[in-house]
Structure formats: structure tokens, C-alpha cells
Nucleic acid binder design. Structure first.
Lengths: 195, 195
DNA sequence: TACGATGCGGACCCTGGGTCCGTTTCATGG
DNA sequence: CCATGAAACGGACCCAGGGTCCGCATCGTA
């Protein structure tokens, strides 16, 4: 399996498409109203190129999302405490959820586009799986969660950071970034028994 | 505004469409793969009839959902305690969330179809609005939630009952109805400070 | 029974995701 | 530097599916 590297033009086009798509998704009102043809045009590329590089619409959005997600993954895996594995669970759980919320807030356009893929629920995605696993593990290490259903609690906590909820808070309740963080932090503290 | 009632045939067709759609959505794997043409055919009706009666796809699903929702609304507004307004807040909150969960569980096909409408986030729907309002109010009456952000807590609690999460628990974690209820009940108790 | 108003239905339109294939560009060996 | 095959390109094309149009059937009333 030689894993031959892509040609120069292919790489350049892939990057152009990612940049164009990022731009378009960021500007538009709703992810629904940017089409694959739009992206292709904005990137100065044919539609087929776009589909060849990413498979389908979902693939493109996924690629964008994953690229943005990389820093967060890095921070949680080998960053600084309290986010990194070195932090104590009781501090790491709120830190992790705060980080996820910030990410969702800063990238709501992408997150919304991803959730709006239709049949693709967010619970299949590798990113979700991974966050859920770490959260579950951390909860298990916290005193007071001995016999508790950490699996579901992790789901429920992550559900409080869902992109469309964040979007709703911003659009219809006029929340800003810091307010959203504070509200989530309160809720998390309450769940952790620090209310 | 005379509010003229519909013709007999119109009423009959509307009912036929609702029945057919309900049936189809219940049977199918994913809501995505039943089309408006399918519904029309199953109801023995032309496509235009269907669009005349419900406006668009979202309208049809909404109508189905609302019909199913009626009993739940009734139970929470004038049913028996602890669900009804006569129940004390500390019991009514878990009862309400349990009822919502059961509803989502029993009607996941519809709830999923509704959430999968694309641009239509669940937070716009009148049903969500109403549940959120009552929940918020109830939380405010519970000791210990004095200065708390009941608005967000209500959102977060409802997020734990989201249809795609329920679907995930069932499909990928093999949960059944009672398990799902127990897990949610645990979580709610924890948030209410009874963990 | 006659006659408007209301509703019917399926042919039709259009958008948008996804594919095909003749042409162009890359990259390697002579 | 050129030949040559492989890889990528792009836009014309296909098709499913949501939504509309309009001539015809049905309803309900005088």
C-alpha cells in the first residue's frame, strides 16, 4: 500500500475549495443556501473536482470541521491543564465542556451545516465519539459518580453544547460568547454537585 | 372572518394523507427516504392535494407531530398530578421530562423527521417554546434555583431528551424504553440536587 | 337541476446533488 | 527537453424530489 501522494494541482485545488467553502459557510445566513456549485465557482474549480476531492457534500463539510477541530483535539490530548489529561477530573470536565462550547460558538456555521446533513446524526461522528468517551471516563473518576450512569450523563452534558442550541441562544436570546460560557459553566457545576 | 369549514372531500383527503404519512414514517428506516410522492400515492391522492392541505413537507410533518402531541399537552395542562399544574414543582419537573422523553421515544420517527427538516431547528417550534416556558417557570419555584439561570437549565434538560440522542441510545447502545427513562430520571435528579 | 366555488390530480418545472467523458496537466524515463 | 501514460480537470449532463399549473370533477346551495 504505497499511499501515493496527490499531484500538485490536486493539492492546490483541495486547499482552494476548503478556503472557499469556509468563507461561504461563514458568510451565509443558513448553510442550506450555499450549494456545491457555489463552492466550486468560488474556488474557481469545476464541480467534479470538488466531488472527486471530498466524495460528497457531507465529506466536504466534514473535512472543514475536522480541520478546525484539530487545535481542540491537540489541546485536550497534550495541551496545558486543566484541559489536558494532567488536569484533575473535577476541573477537566468543566474545562472540556467549556472548550467544546467555545468551539461550537466560534464555528457554529460549520457545526450547523454538519448537523443539518439530514440523516447524519452528530452521534456517529468520530469527534463526538471521542469527546464522549473521554467525558465518560472522567466522570467515572469523580467521587459521587460511582454507581452513576456516566455514559448518559456525558451525552446529556454534551447535548447542552449542541450547535443549534448555541445558535438559538445567540439569535433569539441575544446571548454573547461569555454569557453562553457562564450559563454552561453554571449548569455543569450543578451537575457535578457544586451547585 | 367567517372561517368557512372545508369541503367533505377535502377533510377526507386530509385525514387519508395524515394516516398514510404516519404509517410510512413509522415503517421506514430513515425519514429521508419517504418522498411526498410516496405519501400521495399511499393516500391515493394527487401530489397537489397534499401540498394544498399542508403547504409543504415541513407543514405535513408538523401536522402529524402536533396531532400526536395533543394528549401530552392535555396531560400537562389539565391532567393528573404530578404532571399537571397541581403537582409540586420538585415532582413536576421530573414528571414533565419523563413524559417528554416517552413521547420522543414513542414518536422518534416523527421527531427525527421534524428535526431533519434542515434549516428548521427544533427551537422555533411552538411545542418546544411551550415546554421550555413551563419548565423554566417550574425551576424558578424550586428552592436552590433562586439566582440560577433557569432559562438555560431548562434548555439543557430538554436537550437531554432530543430525538436523535434517544435514537442513538436505542440503535447504538441497545437501550429500551425503561432504561432510557431511568437514565434520564437519574440525570434530572442530579441536576435538581438530589443526586 | 343548474351553476358558481372549491378541490382534484398528474403533467410539468426547477433546483441542486452527483456523474461522464473528452481534454489538459502533471511527472517520470529516455 | 520531449514523449508518454497516468492522474486530474471541468462543464455538460442526468435524475430525484419538492413544489406549481391548469383543465376537469365534485361539492353544496338556490
Amino acid at each position: 500500500m504505497p499511499e501515493r501522494r496527490p499531484r500538485k494541482d490536486a493539492a492546490r485545488n483541495r486547499a482552494a475549495v476548503l478556503a472557499a467553502a469556509d468563507e461561504l459557510f461563514a458568510r451565509c445566513e443558513s448553510p442550506e443556501d450555499i450549494t456545491m456549485a457555489d463552492v466550486a465557482a468560488a474556488a474557481g474549480v469545476g464541480k467534479a473536482t470538488l466531488f472527486r476531492a471530498f466524495g460528497d457534500r457531507t465529506g466536504l463539510i466534514h473535512a472543514l470541521y475536522e480541520a478546525r477541530l484539530a487545535p481542540l483535539r491537540a489541546a485536550t490530548e497534550q495541551g496545558e491543564p486543566p484541559l489536558s489529561p494532567a488536569g484533575p477530573p473535577l476541573e477537566r470536565v468543566p474545562a472540556l465542556l467549556d472548550a467544546v462550547l467555545c468551539f461550537k460558538f466560534d464555528n457554529r456555521h460549520l457545526a450547523l451545516a454538519l448537523e443539518g446533513t439530514g440523516s447524519g446524526s452528530p452521534y456517529q461522528g468520530a469527534h463526538y465519539e471521542s469527546f464522549h468517551r473521554t467525558l465518560t471516563g472522567l466522570l467515572g473518576q469523580i467521587p459521587g459518580f460511582g454507581g452513576a450512569d456516566t455514559d448518559f450523563i456525558a451525552h446529556a452534558l454534551l447535548a447542552a453544547t449542541r450547535a443549534d442550541l448555541v445558535e438559538h441562544l445567540v439569535r433569539h436570546e441575544g446571548a454573547d460568547r461569555e454569557q453562553a460560557r457562564a450559563r454552561l459553566a453554571d449548569f455543569v457545576a450543578r451537575v457535578l454537585g457544586q451547585g
